[in-house]
Nucleic acid binder design. Structure first.
Lengths: 188, 188
DNA sequence: AATTATAACACAACATGTTGTCGGGTAATC
DNA sequence: GATTACCCGACAACATGTTGTGTTATAATT
């Protein structure tokens, strides 16, 4: 769809995605039809195909909007290099305010596996580039450890959304995670 | 379907599940139709509904077959309590031989989120029951640590299936994992 | 051993719903 | 006045879940 009225088309697209999200986060995802989406968004069914090739296309676009932007990545990198943990936390709390609800759902047991995979890849990329891992070790070991580091971080975020924010403050959560990363889980 | 010829019905059921698996692990999962399954399995479409209520029903049954049985759980518990790490490893290598290929796929990025959730819950249940965690700590902390322990273990298995078995032996993998659990990921 | 009964499955047809596409229409915007 | 955004209605193709009616092989009864 060529767009000479960008604001209109952008809003329509948004309406479709929002309508889809409503259904996605309540109903069973695999039972959603194009008609359900267009009915809810208030458009004709045919209009849908002017914006998306099919439901999966819409879904992927929705997910991509929620992945950390390059901009956020850059911020996070800077904060990490300068070891400014308060700034790191701020980035996350801001992300939490804006897309926290959606993240919480997508990371949960009814969420999206493709999103979780994409997010993990992003995390691993960030960690490999900017975190100081011991370069004395074999490359394969570093790769594994990066994966685990990423996994712990990822699981912590997931835990946080699943139940943590009722148990811990963000600070406590972060402290626990770092302790785990540096000293291990179990007393040896 | 009442069954007076158990071997026949069991085999038919198996044929359906196997046919579904073939499609599931190659095509895009959400595009599989009942006709595709029955064609591949060599039965009439109507027969499918004598065995399963719909495709999702079949899928869940397939997943449940792959979850660790209570029997395996019991073995694992005993081996864990007696700290017999060779026995633990044996249980896993046997599981690997029998259902490793399927596990590998289900845990991967194109796999099944519901299966991954179920598996994690099983793991957490096992860990909470039988692993000696420091009981001095607050309950909330124990819960978090259990989740992370489970996460690390889970991610290790996943890593193993994703690329690890080309890099490490099962022994090396286990050693690395334990080291990570007891001493942390990064030198402090 | 001959008989019935029935389990397992095939086949065909059904109403209903979804998909993706198209050609034509209307109202607002450029 | 041209174009854009969208509506409307219709289409063929196909999927779904169900039902009625066969056929055949196996199991139970006599």
């Amino acid at each position: 769809m060529a767009r000479k009225q960008p604001e209109v088309t952008a809003q329509t697209r948004r309406n479709f995605i929002d309508a889809y999200w409503d259904l996605y986060s309540s109903d069973r995802a695999d039972k959603i039809t194009v008609r359900m989406i267009t009915d809810r968004a208030g458009y004709n069914r045919g209009t849908f195909y002017a914006y998306f090739s099919d439901i999966d296309d819409l879904h992927q676009q929705m997910e991509d909007e929620l992945l950390p932007s390059e901009e956020n990545f850059e911020k996070l990198k800077k904060a990490t290099v300068s070891k400014n943990s308060r700034e790191i936390m701020e980035i996350f709390t801001q992300m939490d305010r804006t897309i926290g609800k959606k993240l919480s759902f997508l990371l949960g047991p009814k969420g999206s596996l493709s999103f979780q995979s994409k997010l993990k890849s992003s995390l691993k990329r960030l960690i490999l580039k900017h975190l100081p891992l011991d370069l004395q070790e074999k490359e394969s070991v570093i790769d594994y450890k990066t994966d685990m580091l990423c996994g712990v971080f990822y699981e912590t975020v997931r835990y946080w959304y699943d139940q943590g924010n009722r148990q811990f403050t963000a600070e406590e959560m972060t402290t626990l995670m770092l302790q785990m990363i540096f000293s291990g889980l179990v007393e040896s």
